[in-house]
Every structure is written in C-alpha cells, then in structure tokens.
Computed example of a mutant assay.
Amino acid sequence: MTVDRSSRAEEGIVVGTTTFTARALQRLAVGIAHDVARVSVRDVGVQLSDEHGALRIAVTVPVAIATKSGRPLVDSGEDLRNGLIDGMRELAGREVGTVDVRYSGVRRSTERRVR
C-alpha cells in the first residue's frame, strides 16, 4: 500500500517522533524548580518516578528567605508544586500525578536592584 505524501506536505504535517530521555526530564524539572523556588540549581534535588503512567516528582529545595517577603511556606510549596505540574505539561507534554516538596536548609536571598 502506498501513501500519498503530497497532501501531508501541503498541510504542513511532519511525520516523526519526539523523545525525552529520563535525564532530560530530570534536568527540566530541576530548571523549573530553580525558577519557581528562586534558589541555586545546585541546591535543587529532583527524583522522578512512574505513578500509573503519570510522573511522580520528589523535589528537595532549601527555604529561600527574602528580606522583604513574608510569604508562608505553605504558599511557596504550593507555587512550586503548581509550577512543576504546569511546566512539565507545557514544556514536555507530561502529566504529573504527584509532587512531594521537602525543604532542607535555609538560604537568605537579598533582592538587588539592577542599574
């Protein structure tokens, strides 16, 4: 059986697959956690596992205490959880079933003005 590829070319459809390795998914999760938690990449620990077809993410970050911010840790954890769920869905097309957040240590961050 032959396939008429000319109609696909006209529609702009490209045939193929996109594959994310486990390491790529791990690095992506570390980057997302780094951005959301506002801590150094080296302070972020991420473990990925399978939970009935969805990702289970265990993330460990230090508590980032800003001098002017008085946000509760529960809100920061919720932001991190939602950031990982949304980021992995948007950037890698992966469903995240569970995100476990563990805080380890404290990092003081000072907000700096850019000149």
Score class of each variant (00 low, 15 high):
A64E: 08
G16A: 02
G77D: 01
R56I: 00
S76F: 11
P62G: 01
S7W: 12
R27S: 01
K68V: 11
S104E: 14
T21N: 01
Q26F: 03
R112Y: 13
D75Y: 04
R56D: 06
G70M: 08
N82C: 03
R23W: 05
A33R: 04
T18G: 08
T19Y: 09
L73D: 10
D4P: 02
G53A: 01
R8N: 08
R81A: 05
E51L: 13
R27D: 13
R113F: 07
G70E: 11
A9D: 10
T21L: 05
G97V: 02
S104M: 04
V36P: 09
T98F: 05
S7Y: 11
G97T: 00
D100I: 10
H34T: 15
R38I: 04
R102L: 11
F20H: 02
D50E: 14
V41M: 06
A66T: 00
H52Y: 07
T67C: 06
V61W: 09
F20D: 09
S6C: 06
L80M: 10
A29V: 02
R27H: 12
A9W: 03
V14Q: 13
V46P: 10
T19V: 15
T60L: 05
I65R: 13
E95S: 02
F20P: 04
E51W: 09
D50N: 01
E51Q: 15
D4H: 07
R23S: 13
V41Q: 12
R115D: 10
R56C: 04
A9L: 10
V41G: 09
A64P: 08
D79G: 08
Y103P: 01
